[in-house]
Structures are given as C-alpha cells and as structure tokens.
Nucleic acid binder design. Structure first.
Length: 510
DNA sequence: AGGGAACTGACGTTGGAGCT
DNA sequence: AGCTCCAACGTCAGTTCCCT
C-alpha cells in the first residue's frame, strides 16, 4: 500500500504536490495513507516504532529523499518518484554510503544512525572543497577583527540601464523631498550619492532570535558607476565578522534606502547586532523606505506592491534565473549542510536584482514626483494617486492636472472616484463653476455609484447661489439614491431638507 | 509563518467662518 | 451672542500588506 510521508503543516502541502519523505531532527516520520487523500489524517510515528508500523501490513512507501533537517524545509532536489519496499530502499542507500549493513532488521530499527552515516562530515568537506563559494561567485574572503567572511562584489557602469533610467541619470538626481513621501524630516535633502541601498536575505520570516541575515546586500554609487557588495556568511560562525564589516560600511553613509526595511531588514539586523554585543545606530539612521511611497503611488495600479511586481509591471524588467524568495532559507540550509555552493549563487543573483530594482524604483519615484507629466505615468490610476499625494502635500497646482489626466485615462470603475476628487479640488480652490459642471457630468454618468454629486450640488445651491428650491430638488434626488442602510446619511439629508424648506419660506415671505 | 505600520471605515469632537 | 455648517482631526477596532 503506497504511503505519503512528511512533517508539519508545510510538509503536508508539499507532500500533496510531490510526496517526498521528509525527516525532522527528532526523526519522527509522519505517514499518510494514500487512500485517505481526500481527507488526509497525519500521524506521527517515532522511528523506533516504524518497524511496528511495517509489521502491521504497511509494506510500500514513496521516498524521494531522506535528509536530516535543522528545521523542516522542502527539498529542492529533483528525483524520479518511485515505489519500492522500504527495506529495499534502505539497502540501496546503504550501498551508496558504502557502509556495511549488518542486517535489514537493524537498519529499519535505527534510522537515525543510518542517516548520520549518510551525512558523514567527510562527505560535506569533500563537497566544500569541490564547489566552494569563492570559485562560483565573484568575490573574496575578507577579514575583520572577529574573523573572516565572504564578500561578493559586482560593478555596474554608469550607462547600465535597469528600468527606464541609466545609473548615471539616477546618480545625478538632485536632492528631492523624500521627507514628504516618508514622513521623516531628516530625508528632506536625501542625496543618492550618500545613500546605501540595503537588502538582506535571511533564514526565514519569523523574526526574533532564531532568524539571521546570512546575506547583506549593499549598493552604493562609486565614481559614476554603481557597486553591489554582498556580505555572505559561509557558516553561522562568520556572523560577527560579517556584522562588523557591515557596521564599518554603515558608518560611511548618511542615508539608507530599503524596501520594507523599516519593519524587516533593519529590526532584524539590529537584533543580530545586539546578540553579537555590537553597538549599532542602524535603527537611528535616516531610512528612505521605498515601500510606503510605492504604495501611495501605485496601490491599485497593479495586483500588489511587492518589489518583484513593481519591477516587472512598472519598470518592465524580467529576471532571467530568479528563484522565489521562499526558497532562499532552504537553499542556505543546504549550503550550510553540504558546503556545496552550486545553488546558492542564485541567491546572490536574487539579492543583486533586488538592490538594482530599488535603485530603479527610487529613480522612478523621483521622476513621477518631480515632474509627473514628463514621467508619463502609464495608467490613469497612477496619475490619480499622484494627484492625491500632491493634494495631501498641499501642492494644489500639481494635483489638479493629475486628476484631469487621470480622468481621461482611467477606466469607468475608477472615473467616479477621480471625478469626486477633481470636483472637490475645484470647490476648494474657488472654482465653483467647474465643480458644478463636473457634478452635473457625474449626474449623467452611466456608472453612477452614490448620491455625492446631488449632495454637493445641494450645498452649492444653498450656500453659494441661494437657490433653495433647486437645492431641495437635489436633496430629494439624493434621497432616492442613498441606501436606506445608511441611516445617518439619510438623517442628515432630511435635516438639510427641513432647513432648506424653512429658508425657502423665509425667502418667499420677504 | 511573525511583526507591526499603514490603511479603512465609522463615529465623535473641535474650531473657524458666516449668517441672523 | 448664538446658531449652523463644514472641514479637519482624533479615536478605535479590524484588516491588509510586506519582508525571507
């Protein structure tokens, strides 16, 4: 009877996809009968009871890989699925490890010992010698007072183009008011020449003391070009050296540029610094976190505001050999376990691309904010967001043209909201007539959504034109459109009508 | 998965402006 | 002086989003 095996929640999902055998450090194996696939029930079976299970008639098992994991993770190796007897599989494994097998009964009874033998240290060292990181990634071993670590380095010339601007164009961006986009006054005059772009790769998302940043990617302008340096821990013991070098580099820059670094990379690095008993001002450094301005400008324009989404959809860039970020912890654990750097180079590529995307994104944000018309936002929604941003910043001259362009370019779904904002902008800048004509346009709009133009027109006729009868007409129309669930709004409209009737009577009696 | 800021929507409060 | 309107701001609870 074939079985599917795995551990933990994540394991269950993976099993349903590819049915690997996964083993935790405590060597409990979880079995699921294939016949229960519709409503899987997983049970934990300690390895010392495996033989009992096998004796109960469970004879066949799906095995893709057996491995010891520090933490659970998905195997990225590809194997041909096969079905065979467990005893037969263990016999084969024993022949690979060239360790004599006393008896099959012994093997099934002491799985832990078998796995230990399969992963003997000398095997790991052999791979580390064969495929060291230094040979596969462009970089070198660097020293600090606490020890050594690996540092990769890549240079990008000034004419290198990632997105719509060259690095040289981004380098030459004058300071721009990033404080308005980030809420941090210290970024009033951010200068990319003095900024350090930072992105980490970590062993997970959990945060706390269990997660560490095994790679810290740093990007900065040097001369006219751009350099990406990546500090990489070849072993957990290299963390102190890595953090020490990072701290030295941080001391040379005034600003940090990150993507969600404010809530992810920086707190994590700060925790690691504290655990390494290092003083660090990383949290105090002015940080231009690109996530927040990106959300303000492009929220709603694309399916989400993740860095990779903005990279492909906004900047039009595609990565050639990228990996999903959720694979990264697993690839690093493999590297630590085997010393084989043949796969980890993809993490270097991923990190490098993240940093280049941040640079391009910072350039794009500058472009649309500095001169939205010249930046030619691609979508109406982008103009709309920019308009609201300028409006919030009190820049009405820039806001209104953005709304007007947005209205021409957006779809019917968004047009209603754009018209609301544009009419409100006209009203508040003393352009009552323009607002008035827009409310009328809204009243004729086939995709009308609410009573907004009628309520606004009622206010306009009551307070500006003093035409109370006309105002009452608009209130009545608003009452027919407003949902009766919105009791408060109905109540307000009824009060308005009552007041207008009083004013009308007063007017007529004069 | 964990953390936490930002966002959203509903509701209440406050204060300035204009009118009677 | 007192009233009304309106916009801006505050609070709260629940939700969304992003990083590996």
């Amino acid at each position: 009877m074939p079985l599917l095996c795995g551990t933990g929640k994540r394991g269950r999902r993976e099993i349903e996809r590819s049915s690997p055998l996964l083993v935790k450090r405590n060597f409990k194996i979880i079995f699921k009968r294939k016949s229960e696939a519709r409503n899987p029930k997983f049970e934990t079976i300690p390895n010392d009871q495996i033989s009992n299970v096998l004796n109960k008639g469970v004879k066949r098992i799906w095995i893709l890989k057996i491995r010891i994991c520090f933490e659970f993770r998905y195997s990225d190796f590809e194997f041909e699925p096969f079905t065979m007897d467990l005893k037969e599989r263990l016999r084969q494994l024993s022949s690979i490890s060239k360790v004599p097998v006393a008896s099959i009964e012994e093997e099934t009874g002491d799985l832990k010992e078998r796995l230990d033998r399969l992963l003997r240290p000398e095997k790991v060292f052999r791979k580390r010698e064969l495929y060291p990181i230094e040979k596969l990634v462009n970089g070198k071993i660097v020293s600090a007072s606490e020890g050594e670590t690996f540092r990769a380095e890549e240079y990008f010339p000034p004419d290198f183009r990632y997105g719509e601007m060259t690095l040289s164009e981004i380098h030459n961006i004058p300071t721009y008011p990033a404080h308005l986009l980030s809420g941090d006054e210290r970024l009033k005059e951010i200068d990319f020449k003095k900024a350090l772009f930072l992105d980490t790769e970590t062993t997970g998302l959990s945060g706390g003391t269990g997660t560490l940043a095994f790679m810290v990617g740093l990007g900065f302008f040097q001369g006219d070009g751009f350099v990406v340096q990546q500090l990489f821990m070849r072993d957990y013991s290299e963390e102190k050296a890595s953090l020490s070098i990072l701290q030295d580099i941080l001391n040379s820059y005034q600003f940090l540029v990150t993507f969600n670094g404010r809530h992810y990379d920086i707190p994590l690095l700060e925790t690691r610094m504290i655990l390494s008993r290092k003083r660090s001002q990383i949290r105090e450094m002015p940080n231009f976190d690109l996530l927040f301005p990106s959300r303000k400008i492009w929220k709603g324009a694309y399916e989400n505001c993740r860095l990779v989404t903005l990279e492909s959809r906004l900047l039009g860039m595609e990565r050639e050999e990228d990996i999903p970020s959720e694979w990264i912890p697993s690839l690093y654990f493999d590297y630590i376990q085997t010393g084989d750097a043949r796969k980890i180079h993809r993490v270097f590529y991923h990190n490098r691309m993240d940093i280049l995307t941040m640079v391009a994104l910072a350039g794009r944000i500058h472009l649309v904010y500095h001169d939205p018309q010249a930046a030619r936002p691609r979508k109406g929604v982008e103009h709309f967001s920019l308009g609201r941003l300028f409006w919030d910043h009190g820049d009405r001259e820039k806001a209104i043209p953005c709304f007007e362009i947005a209205l021409k370019r957006c779809d019917d779904e968004l047009a209603w909201e754009v018209m609301k904002w544009l009419s409100m902008a006209f009203k508040k800048t003393g352009q009552g007539e323009k607002a008035h004509s827009l409310w009328h346009e809204m009243m004729e709009w086939p995709y009308r959504k609410d009573a907004y133009p009628y309520i606004e027109a009622a206010k306009y006729y009551e307070h500006r034109l003093k035409e109370f009868e006309k105002a009452i007409e608009y209130v009545d129309q608003a009452l027919t459109l407003i949902s009766f669930h919105r009791e408060r709004d109905v109540e307000l409209l009824l009060e308005r009508k009552k007041r207008l009737l009083k004013k009308k009577v007063g007017n007529e009696s004069r």
